[in-house]
Amino acid sequence: MPSITITVNGREVTSEVEPRTLLVEFLREQLRLTGTHVGCDTSQCGACVVHVGGRAVKSCTTLAVQCDQAEVTTIEGLARDGVLHPMQEAFREHHGLQCGYCTPGMIMAAVDIVNRHGMPDEKTVREELDGNLCRCTGYHNIVKAILAAAEKMQGAGQPIAAE
């Protein structure tokens, strides 16, 4: 079995993996980082979104071996020293979650959207969320949360990278 070294949430991990192991399986089953979820098997729902090298990727369609030597951030690594990321705060403040299952992927995707667009308008946010499904909220409050977080992240003077 190949051995890989990945930095996950700032911590370097070296592990042997079956070549077919998906990144999400590696995170959930090997590292027990169960905040990253699996909601489908066709790369459609986005519950599994994490950041690899600072970009949002679907960890259900990424092999763990592809991430050798990469930096991976999951929802567990987004808050720093117990301080929530503005995107996490905004989801709570604007009731952008109900059952919470899509939420980690939503938040990770949302951080990436703001990192790439700065201050996106509503239409852009809705289009960019195309790869993330939520069955509870009707997206209304998710969109509101992302726009509010974008403003805060801009206000902080820089796009707040997750990494």
């Binding site: 169960t34 905040g35 567990e76 987004l78 009731h95 919470g100 938040i107």
Partner: peptide, 15 residues
């Protein structure tokens, strides 16, 4: 604001 949110937004839900 919901008291259950903190665990969900930090990946600490228990499904």
């Amino acid at each position: 604001q919901r008291v259950e949110d903190r665990r969900f937004i930090t990946g600490k839900g228990n499904y």
